[in-house]
């Protein structure tokens, strides 16, 4: 699903965010991306949805080379990818329903299709009773679940999450992990950037470790 070959990203000549990274992530994988602050986790994820272009190397997503992707093709790449952030990135002036519908509308989906899918996605994250609320009227955990509903409502091939529970307590974190696991069980490839090693202890999955932009570890849980 995702392949990187000798990918390097420099923001300037003396700051290397990702260095000579080669790795492969298969369809249906669930992968933690870990590493200290500044290790390059965010940069790595941003290159996958073409928010950054690699300085060197090649990136393939869903068998397409996105290294030199043209601007007018980027939207079609992003429709395959759901992204969840630490700060949710919800529109405060819109209702919960509208925030989730936004992702479908942006893809030009029909209205009856939109309302059905939005309801399903919100039900999936347990917030179908909050349709007409504004994000700020909800708790942080609820807001993040809305952001996850927005990412998943389009049935993405890949879900990228950049420290999605960075600001949330353990209970909420576990709820969110449950949502990711369910999406993964339905076939979505999940990449989760996190500092939190306890997550891996609860839900052992493949861990890719970065340090100063370099790949320093790639462990899979022992079977059984």
């Amino acid at each position: 699903m995702i392949q990187l070959y000798n990918v390097t990203k420099k923001y300037s000549s003396d700051s290397v965010a990702v260095k000579d990274l080669t790795l492969q992530i298969d369809k249906g994988d669930f992968v933690y991306i870990t590493g200290a602050s500044g290790a390059g986790k965010t940069t790595f994820l941003r290159m996958l949805y073409a928010a950054e272009k690699p300085t060197r190397g090649q990136i393939l997503v869903d068998r397409k080379n996105i290294t030199r992707i043209r601007g007018n093709q980027i939207p079609y790449l992003r429709r395959k990818i759901g992204v969840v952030f630490q700060d949710f990135k919800l529109l405060q002036s819109r209702t919960v329903y509208e925030n989730v519908a936004f992702a479908l509308e942006a893809q030009g989906k029909k209205r009856y299709e939109v309302s059905k899918k939005v309801y399903q996605a919100l039900k999936e994250v347990g917030l179908e009773h909050r349709l007409q609320r504004k994000p700020l009227e909800l708790s942080g955990g609820e807001q993040q679940r809305i952001a996850i509903a927005r990412a998943l409502v389009v049935d993405p091939l890949i879900l990228l999450a950049d420290e999605p529970s960075g600001n949330l307590d353990l209970g909420v974190t576990l709820e969110i992990m449950e949502l990711f696991k369910r999406a993964n069980a339905r076939g979505t490839t999940v990449l989760l950037a996190t500092h939190d090693h306890s997550l891996n202890q609860r839900f052992p999955r493949r861990i890719i470790t970065l340090d100063k932009g370099k790949l320093v570890g790639d462990q899979r849980p022992l079977p059984g």
């Binding site: 949805y49 939207p75 429709r79 990135k89 529109l91 942006a106 893809q107 927005r150 389009v154």
Partner: peptide, 16 residues
Amino acid sequence: RDELEIMALVGATMRF
């Protein structure tokens, strides 16, 4: 700008 950023993020085309 938030709205524009999120639209681009969820795969809206420039035209859209």
